[in-house]
Design a binder for these strands. Sequence first.
RNA 1: GGAGCUGUGGUGUAGUCGGUUAACAUAUCGGCCUGUCAAGCCGGAGAUCGCGGGUUCGAGCCCCGUCAGCUCCGCCA
Length: 589
Amino acid sequence: MRLRRTYWCGDISLKNVGTNVVLAGWVQGRRDHGGLLFIDLRDRTGLIQLVFNYEHQEDLFRAAEKLRAEYVLAVSGAVIGRSPETINLKLATGEIEIRVDEIEVLNMAQVPPFYIEDAIDTDENLRLRYRYLDLRRPEMQEMLRLRHRLLMAARKCLDERGFWEIETPMLTRSTPEGARDYLVPSRISPGCFYALPQSPQLFKQLLMVAGAERYFQIARCFRDEDLRADRQPEFTQIDMELSFCVREDLIAEVEALLARIYREVLGRELHTPLPVISYAEAMERFGSDKPDTRFGMELQDISGIARECAFKVFNQAVSAGGAVKGINVKGCGYFSRKELDDLTALVQSWGTGGLAWMIVTEEGFKTPIAKFFTNAQLNSLRRYMAGEDGDLLLFIADAPDAAQKILGQLRLHLARKLDLIAEGEDHFLWVLDFPLFAFSPEENRYTSNHHPFTAPRDEDIPLLRTEPQKVRSLAYDLVCNGVEIAGGSIRIHGRDLQETIFRLLGLTQEELEEKFGFLLEAFKYGAPPHGGIAFGLDRLLMLMSKRKSIRDVIPFPKTAAGTCLLTGAPAPVSPHQLQELHIKNFGTQ
RNA sequence: GGAGCUGUGGUGUAGUCGGUUAACAUAUCGGCCUGUCAAGCCGGAGAUCGCGGGUUCGAGCCCCGUCAGCUCCGCCA
């Protein structure tokens, strides 16, 4: 390489007119007019136009004629201002161009399999197979830049607030609970396996015992579960933990970090403190523990009226300990019978018996179940549901949590269908006071809602012995637009309480010692009160860049089947490799 | 594990009721062209229609299977 770059393409402007510059980059395109030839040169900062004139320099012109898309060049030339009629306002550097006096072709290139430009509509297979070309496209370069800026802003902010960036092992041990582990066989210990971390959970708690006080890590995490549009088998967390803190301290730290990120990366102010809602209230009002609060259509409880009415589905549900919940779909009284039947089928596919509907009209209620209600009941229904003429009221009768959850899903479904969601704004909120446990009927035991190290609220500790399902935890989720962005908790720091929880989770003393003995032992040596949280960095980026797929914010993502189309991973290995690892291949049956 | 959608020159699409030579745009290659920036004009090459089987006189189109990608359910402390 003879010519050494002196400027980036996108940094040149009218200020540089009259100077000589050396640029380097890729050929974006070529416009050949015979004796006059234009080349757009691209680097990661943008495009700039190179001009070659046959009359000006014949040899150079002949060389330029041979250039093709994606050839790699260094050029030297003079920055000249364009004449007014040739200025291109669509191009950031459209007021100037480079009159080239020397070209160095650093590499030739095959014709790429798709266009290197934004808004391409090509098969994602191809984009992933040739990811290095896909990443050349400006919108993908912008993603890389945004990701970098987010990481830098987070690191700077956490550093300034006294957090130490500390690495924890990637080769660790498999633990029960949680997602399926990715396993790594040990060569030196035959028959034994490492697990890749689902999160650095245990290590960051040990760091608190170790007196690190404030820890963070940009941590890669691995979970061997099926993929989704917002889920990859390996993903990145901004992981934090701090000692001597209460829940409110954690929340304040996170809000400071998030505000800093929004300011530095997007130039936007985040108004803190962020709204807070309890898990119970979120479930009651939105039927979700990650409510999308960008629109209304909140759930109402009409169990009181349902109990009194003559409609068996309603009154029996309530007397069996269930609930009747409703939503008001404003102005949708025009829904056809078919649409209502489709909605009914939808909620049935989600596992409830059916859907009751009422349309509020000037003459009263239009509904197949009118005869089961007195006028007084219908009037209080209308009042409860804030029903106005033309509204559609939908009701589900079921066990309280099922009715909430399914109606919450229906609320989301309708909001998307009716385009009620204001895309411009981000609605952050904290969800607090999650139940510590969920009961698993399949396993006939309690499981941790968050993870087994989550502390219960002090005042609920007595309930551990009597009604564990009622114990509220010191866990907190940060939710935005119906997506969980971050989640964490205050941890248990006492050995006795931790053992009680493990036992409630059905872990035997042996399992407990074997799997978590090292943590319980650490807790004997003066563990400080501590708590932490982890951000889903990829999801945060999706939110900040308004992308619909997590693959669009990860440089080298995997497909829905967990494969990498670029490298071909996962792939078979040689028998020799397996032998060294003491692994026998049983084939694919 | 289950459900749905998609697969046709390099790329994006069209392809009727199953009918003979698979169309269009763009990219690409060659020629012309001195102010383009989605350059323009002329010409050329480029597809066994994801793969395998079946039905049929005949399949891009219908049927079965399979592969790949995407979306959703289960799963994801």
